[in-house]
Design a protein around this nucleic acid. Structure first.
Lengths: 357, 357
DNA sequence: CTGAAAGCGCTTACAG
DNA sequence: CTGAAAGCGCTTACAG
């Protein structure tokens, strides 16, 4: 019906074709109540026939909504940020929203940060903002948003639960599963590479792991080293943990970047993974398949986290109902860096290349 | 002046404060000609006093411009896509434009692709689109855009030069510099890890390297292996090149992912980098600093490429002038994977610049 | 060089 | 449950 190059249909076109008023078309498009089924059917048929898509600029200008949500991200890992954008963008696109990404950077103090946020809000029209780590635990940022009456959703908060709708995964439970995996494979001498205690996820992963170990293998010996969630610090942590007489048989690095560092430390010390040392990461980011052997790790659904957060903000208007927190599932991805100490076989997928040389 | 929480100023507010018509404010905001300096000064003062920012929705609705540019990307490397978005987004943000990212995927045939693009164009209002690899060399895509009269800019094209404004770097010249680096450090037995010949950059890098070697070291012995621009294929290529009697002393992997693969192959074969084998990559992506030692590579200014492409589309309206192609500089980043065969020292950052013998 | 009028495509506020 | 009128904040097209 819709010949390429033809003018885009307007709401008035739809109204005329359906034989109703523009307001009625508007009601159908916006899923407003009090519309008879008959009228709705006529309008929907006309919309389909004309391939009508509402003009967001007109909707924004006439109404109170801007059809734009903000995504505030820290200058953290490229992969993490990218996945966040991917997810938020997907939700926005599916609902005709624009996404306005703001790269905040966390190297300034709260007062300066708030001044900056104030400027952002003054020069944009936003229906809501998605606040991501480490801002999602920053109460100066939340105070400000609340003072402006700006709706927001939090990605992966670790404090102040309930202050605003949140989307998260259970880092502690996931770390507990890593503990299960280690113990199930016979490991009792264990290394733990931690992240900064300022980082909510780092704390949750460490605590979740330790608490689970205390339950299932109270006899286990655990040594810790700070890996700062970074490759180079991971190398140092790995050397610290491994360059000793009675080294651990397995190391849980609480993110993939530091896990890759630990693997490099192994190579430097002439240790083979997983024959000499088993390693598990956390995140399932790019690094996990950029090391050899491929890293066993916990998959964090970053894009989905941001997508759901965006939906929280979008649905807020569509359904007029307050939305609840959402917990997203994680997944332990068993690749090739864990060895089963009891059967002396490494745990891996069926087909793994030859490992001679 | 602008108290937090106050209403946003409109063009009418500015006009009243300056004592001129709205149309005059519009002329100043849009940098239209035929405006007296006196009027311009008054308007600009009022804009500054009120902190006025034009409403993009209203501009879009009233005018022919949508203040939205499209970014069409392939499902290639996450890092590459992220950098592209980062750059395009920055240009858009600085000019009050929206960015609409479309993840196209290249696994379908041209006809299906064009049908999809047609649908995208019909359901969006775009001022122009940034076309990125591998679409930037796809003539079906370009034909379609031209048939729709849609302005577009190409990122890193390798064919059909001049068909539309383009932004690129000189891959061949950069690869030539890698050849210079190898030869300068005394390497004559050289491995070359290539990418798919379908990929313009892969071809340019290979050719540029080979042609430069032919000039500066015609006696050099070069062996090639296909690395498919990927980590795992890079491992295979590295093993193929290195697991022989007279192995090369240096390998140029034409992208960083395959270079990381070659480094893994070295580890597997018990070879130390750069003592036994020197390695150079290309791209300077995340991998370059996620391997040890850090990879010497060519920095490709991906974000800047996309940023300039966006600017081409934005300025097109602002200045009403046809814009020309832009060539962006690359940079050879000497890190720690090249050894100087003549002095038996590895070349690394501290020693950069003065390596006279 | 400057401005008054009309209108972009929707939603709001109000009637019926 | 449905619709007619006004208006969002700009730009276009036209005058002067």
């Amino acid at each position: 019906m819709n010949v390429s190059g033809s003018q885009r249909a307007t709401m008035l076109d739809v109204a005329r074709l359906a034989g109703v008023s523009e307001k009625s078309v508007s009601r159908v498009v916006n899923r407003e109540p009090h519309v008879s089924q008959k009228l709705r059917d006529k309008v929907e048929a006309a919309i389909a026939e004309l391939g009508y898509v509402p003009d967001p600029a007109a909707r924004s200008l006439a109404g109170v909504r801007s059809f734009t949500v903000g995504l505030w991200i820290d200058t953290r890992g490229l992969h993490y940020s990218m996945k966040l954008m991917e997810g938020a963008y997907e939700a926005c696109r599916a609902h005709g929203y624009h996404l306005q990404v703001e790269n905040l950077g966390s190297k300034i103090d709260d007062a300066a940060q708030v001044a900056r946020l104030d400027n952002i809000l003054r020069t944009s029209r936003l229906d809501g903002v998605i606040v991501t780590p480490l801002f999602s635990d920053n109460s100066a940022v939340m105070d400000f948003l609340e003072s402006q009456g700006m709706p927001y959703a939090r990605v992966s908060p670790f404090t102040h639960y309930g202050r605003a709708p949140a989307v998260f995964m259970d880092d502690a439970a996931a770390a507990g599963e890593v503990a299960d995996l280690f113990v199930r494979n016979g490991h009792r001498f264990i290394g733990l590479v931690t992240g900064s205690p300022r980082h909510g996820a780092a704390v949750a992963r460490r605590t979740g792991f330790l608490e689970r170990i205390a339950i299932i293998a109270p006899d286990a010996v655990i040594t810790e080293a700070e890996g700062n969630f970074a490759f180079e610090a991971g190398i140092a942590a790995g050397r610290q943990l491994l360059d000793v007489a009675d080294r651990p048989t397995a190391i849980f690095a609480t993110n993939d970047d530091s896990a890759a560092g630990v693997m490099t430390a192994c190579a430097q010390l002439g240790l083979t993974v997983p024959d000499d040392v088993s390693i598990c990461g956390f995140d399932d980011n790019l690094m996990a398949k950029s090391v050899w052997p491929y890293l066993t790790t916990v998959h964090q659904p970053i894009a989905e986290l941001a997508q759901q957060a965006a939906l929280l903000l979008i649905d807020r208007h569509a359904d007029k109902r307050q939305t609840a927190d959402v917990l997203l599932p994680h997944r332990l991805v068993e690749r090739d860096t864990i060895r089963d100490l009891r059967t002396s076989e490494k745990v891996c997928r069926p087909a793994m290349g030859d490992d001679d040389a």
